[in-house]
Amino acid sequence: MIRNVPRCAPAALAALAALAACTPKFDPASSVRELRVLAVRAEPPEIAPPGDPSAPGTAALDTLVALPAFVVDPSPQVVVLHLACTPDPGNPTSTACVQFQTLSDPAQLLGGVDPASACAAPGTGKRGAISFGGVEACGLAGCGPVTVRRDPADPASDVTLPAPRYLLPADFSFDAYPASAPERVLGLEADDLALAVQATPAELAPLAAAADACATLAAAGARFETLWSSRPHVVSLKRIQIRGPAAPSPPNHNPAVSGITLGGAALTPPGGSPARIAPGKVADLLPVLPGDFAALRETYVRSDSSGAPIETRQEDWSFSWFATAGDIDLLHTTDPSEADAYTAPASGRVLLWSVVRDLRGGVAWTVADAEAAP
């Protein structure tokens, strides 16, 4: 039986077609068309509480920032401020760093940082609270110290702000957990928020003379908050693994990647002449490792949510690919021999990044500079 079609159907179909035509097209995740934080690295990626000699109690932090403007100006153009949230062992409440309202406006966390602690012990966590982790200035070559002028009228008044790090507080321990608690095996995680804003280090300098280094740091924080509300910005969450006292595996280390090849040819790192690539050509992207893949991957004991061991295995690595121009076929590959197809742009300079993760908190990266030209 043929059913009657409502008279409104043609109009409805036309509306649906118009809606489909207006659906926005989003850039693929591998495309760097604006300010991006591609990764945050803790070195080492796994730390231990005071009194546990199996791993350090502190980790240095650095950020992989990608910006299309680095193609023409590789100088530091992005400032990254780190804030940390330390878990309170035995307290199941999540930290403020991972709450939805925080991630929607992380700059509000600056008001919860104790200025005296930020100055006296930068980078030191506080159980169940927010702490200041440090600040860095990032360009194409990586991130480095932020130096600002304490007194705008005095060229000799430069102050270097604390570099990013995370240090477990002296009172942190797993004593609140019974001997059978899974946390003693699985450990806990501290949260680091990397707040990146498109600004130069000089823009963090006090507008009027600051009394001392502590006042300079406070003024820089206020300047950062102002810039955050008016400039392109992005936030990234990094989890730092805290070893439990019954952890069954040795401490984790970051993976390693030393370069990128395209079509079998090594691409050059930034700072030299960019590698020439054929416009519009499709070629294989591959990472370059500093050694044998099987030897580089660490062996560890995988446990279930109760802390019971499941198996002993090697790490699984994931390679992520990013570019300022051209097209990348796959966002991730899982083996250094697995090629990712890259289509070069019609012309111009391009930056390509490869980020490798060991899926246990470890991360490493490399960047290459190329130019599409006949």
Rank of each mutant, 00 (worst) to 15 (best):
A209E: 03
D292K: 08
L193V: 03
S31L: 12
S354Y: 12
P49I: 06
W365C: 01
G187S: 05
A60P: 03
L109A: 10
E34H: 14
G264P: 05
P89H: 02
P345R: 06
A202T: 09
L16V: 10
G271V: 05
V257P: 03
V355M: 02
A265G: 12
L16G: 03
V288P: 08
G187L: 04
P76Y: 07
P6H: 10
S303P: 12
R297G: 01
G291H: 05
L207F: 08
A156F: 11
A246C: 12
E183R: 12
I260V: 10
G326M: 05
V356Y: 05
P255Q: 03
P255H: 08
D73G: 03
L16S: 11
V235Y: 05
K25E: 15
G271M: 01
S318P: 04
W321T: 05
V71T: 13
A179N: 09
T312Q: 07
P250V: 09
T93N: 09
P290Y: 12
S31F: 12
V135R: 04
L204S: 02
P6C: 00
E43Y: 13
T124C: 09
T366V: 13
A18V: 14
V185M: 07
P206F: 07
P6F: 02
R7L: 14
W321S: 00
L188V: 08
V72T: 15
L103Q: 10
L109C: 00
S131I: 01
G128V: 01
W317K: 04
P49S: 05
Q314I: 12
R3F: 08
C214G: 10
I242M: 00
A323L: 07
G326T: 08
A294G: 11
A141D: 15
I260D: 05
V282T: 14
P92V: 06
W317L: 00
D192Q: 09
Y177V: 07
A42G: 14
R231Q: 09
R231W: 07
A325R: 08
A346Y: 06
P206H: 05
L195C: 05
L285C: 02
A373Q: 11
E46M: 14
D154E: 09
G144L: 03
S30C: 09
H233C: 11
A199M: 01
R349M: 12
D284P: 00
V146R: 01
A283H: 08
P269E: 09
A17G: 11
G133E: 06
G244Q: 10
I310P: 04
P374Y: 07
P24T: 02
L195D: 02
A344E: 05
R36Y: 13
L262D: 07
